[in-house]
């Protein structure tokens, strides 16, 4: 039977059907597979069973990922195919094609002598396309990192500095972030890039977070990345006082935003600074001078409670927690009550 998917011919394969005699008599979580899915999977299964590492198998993995991106070995299979085509297999392919002289366009749409660079570049673009189509996919970014590793090994002789991050990585990240500025996987990938390519002192990373914080000062992913860039490297390439001023300015603009307060506290904790220094700053947001409620910040009271605790002002700390529980943040009354009891008994 003739069987084609896209430009590729699979007629020589014996499809492995989806029946499973062990479970067919039991109806349990039984998906009504479409004919299309059944055909596709039966050829995919046949290719996997042979472990065929070829262009047509590569194309098949794309079709399967389009249907069921959570398939946990199709990614491993695809990686092995790419590795074969770009690595050990690349030389053989070129030789074979040269000997053949009249390559079958259907069998090898890339033509003769496809270089490892072309194969890997094509794969990277494919990763970008799939990521844009599957925003929440867990596997695609891990897979992309494997491909980057392969490029560094096969094309740049292990020298990671030859990999052009600005050209290959920043544009896709920007596109993804434009669709969802808090996409967890994309931010984790950005973190991986900083770690892998040692970008802690890169001006671009700080600029990137700053740009996103200007757009939305409540973007906690951007705050977290900023923290990682500045405080996660071996040395710090940012003046600490400047950074504290930067976050204080953001708090003054939006005093009820929990992300910027968290960040300020994070710096103090990380650097072992005394939060007592922040008392004057906190005062601006607790309505001390004027009873101006529109500038009140629940987070400022929370910090004030902790400042009193470290200053051993047990009663004052208890009063702040009581105010939080009874008036400012009633939903967490049980938590604030626990904090009050702890503060007063310590």
């Amino acid at each position: 039977m003739s069987q084609k998917f896209g430009d590729y011919d699979y007629s020589d394969l014996e499809p492995l059907p989806l029946d499973s005699p062990e479970t067919d008599d039991i109806i349990l979580c039984r998906i009504m597979y479409s004919e299309e899915y059944k055909t596709l999977m039966s050829y995919m299964r046949a290719l996997m069973a042979k472990n065929e590492l070829s262009e047509r198998a590569l194309y098949m993995t794309e079709l399967v990922i389009g249907k069921v991106a959570a398939h946990y070995t199709v990614w491993e299979y695809r990686y092995k195919i790419v590795k074969e085509l770009a690595g050990e297999g690349a030389a053989d392919n070129a030789a074979e094609n040269a000997a053949d002289n009249a390559p079958d366009g259907l069998q090898d749409s890339q033509g003769p002598g496809v270089s490892p660079s072309t194969i890997l570049q094509r794969e990277l673009s494919w990763c970008g396309r799939i990521a844009l189509e599957n925003e929440k996919n867990y596997q695609i970014w891990h897979y992309r990192q494997l491909i980057i590793g392969l490029m560094i090994d096969l094309l740049y002789g292990g020298d990671s500095s030859s990999y052009d991050i600005e050209k290959e990585e920043y544009p896709i990240i920007s596109k993804m972030i434009k669709d969802d500025e808090k996409n967890y996987h994309v931010w984790s990938h950005r973190r991986w890039l900083v770690e892998t390519f040692k970008l802690h002192s890169s001006k671009e990373e700080l600029r990137f977070t700053e740009e996103l914080l200007i757009q939305d000062v409540r973007n906690n992913s951007a705050w977290n990345h900023r923290f990682f860039v500045i405080f996660g490297g071996k040395t710090m390439n940012r003046d600490l006082d400047e950074e504290i001023e930067f976050v204080k300015l953001q708090i003054e603009k939006s005093p009820t935003n929990p992300s910027s307060w968290n960040y300020l506290r994070g710096i103090y904790k990380k650097m072992g600074l005394n939060i007592g220094e922040l008392k004057g700053f906190v005062d601006k947001f607790i309505g001390k001078e004027k009873e101006k409620e529109d500038n009140l910040s629940v987070q400022a009271f929370e910090l004030l409670g902790e400042i009193y605790e470290i200053e051993n002002e047990k009663r004052k700390a208890g009063e702040v927690y009581e105010l939080l529980g009874k008036k400012l943040d009633v939903i967490r009354v049980n938590y604030w009550e626990q904090r009050r009891l702890l503060a007063e008994s310590n």
Binding site: L28, R30, I31, M32, A69
Partner: peptide
């Protein structure tokens, strides 16, 4: 969820045991 699932569940094929456990 424990019975016959519509075609739209094809994308969950790899997560069938999760569907079973939750249900």
């Amino acid at each position: 969820c424990l019975g016959v699932l519509p075609t739209s569940f094809e994308s969950e094929d790899s997560n069938k045991l999760a569907v079973l456990y939750f249900s």
